[in-house]
């Protein structure tokens, strides 16, 4: 019998896992590896960006605004690649019913994970819009430009995003490569923008988790015994609803 070292078992185990994964889901494994940031976990474009019939753009992130300013930064990223002004972007943050699951908001990872996903999803959405406009206008897509929420042709024709949404399907998987703007041409990213969360914070608006008030919400509090082995005998219940576990 061959005696294997621990290191070799780990090595062969890792190979087996990799092999099984790739053979079962070859395209998924390959594409997911190539997708940027949190697109790896949530690869459909409409997980990140939706445009409604009126042309309203909504961007979704699974990261939370904790005062680090990411709402403002993510709006800038989306606005840049979608070629609209920041006021045209509505951003929904970390809502378990609506946004991608991006795990923790920590470790200075929000821009690299969520920001990268939104950057690429926005660029790909813009290219899809350009493609739709190209077929409407019967011109090559690469002759068109996206400007301020509309697609413009060299001969002066213009189609607003709102006019293109009826044919727009963003429930498609992101591509590994996006046609991103050249940073030299940026007009929103890299320019100062007032933080969107500050007005609420200077006026008592709902800004933090503890500002959420849900029907019949109760607060939990751990009460520790004064001595090892002590057992809770009674608890005085306040007049308000209170549960003791």
């Amino acid at each position: 019998m061959t005696v294997l070292s621990r290191r070799e078992i780990l090595k062969s185990g890792a190979l087996v896992v990799a092999f099984q994964f790739c053979s079962s889901f070859p395209s998924l494994a390959q594409d997911a590896k190539q997708l940027s940031g949190s697109l790896k976990r949530s690869s459909f474009l409409d997980s990140w960006i939706r445009i409604d019939a009126g042309g309203q753009i909504t961007v979704f992130t699974g990261k939370s605004e904790l005062g680090q300013g990411i709402k403002t930064a993510l709006i800038q990223v989306a606005a840049e690649e979608l070629c609209v002004t920041p006021e045209n972007i509505k951003l929904i943050t970390s809502d378990t019913a609506q946004t991608p699951n991006e795990g923790f908001t920590s470790g200075s990872l929000s821009m690299s994970e969520s920001g990268t996903a939104i950057l690429n999803a926005a660029a790909q959405t813009r290219e899809i819009l350009l493609g739709l406009a190209a077929s409407h206008m019967q011109v090559p897509a690469d002759s068109l430009r996206a400007v301020n929420g509309a697609v413009e042709s060299p001969d002066g024709r213009k189609l607003r995003y709102a006019e293109l949404v009826k044919d727009l399907d963003l429930h498609v998987e992101a591509q590994p490569v996006s046609k991103k703007k050249n940073p030299d041409t940026y007009s929103v990213v890299g320019t100062p923008l007032q933080r969107v969360d500050i007005p609420g914070k200077v006026s008592g608006g709902a800004a933090y988790v503890q500002d959420m008030r849900l029907p019949n919400m109760v607060h939990a509090r751990v009460v520790r015994p004064p001595a090892v082995g002590a057992v809770l005998q009674t608890a005085v219940r306040p007049s308000k609803p209170c549960r003791v576990f």
Partner: peptide
């Protein structure tokens, strides 16, 4: 003035 100076990071102390 707090908005104009962007005088908040997390903002918890600001009120």
């Amino acid at each position: 003035a707090f908005i104009d100076e962007q005088a908040a990071q997390c903002g918890y102390c600001i009120a």
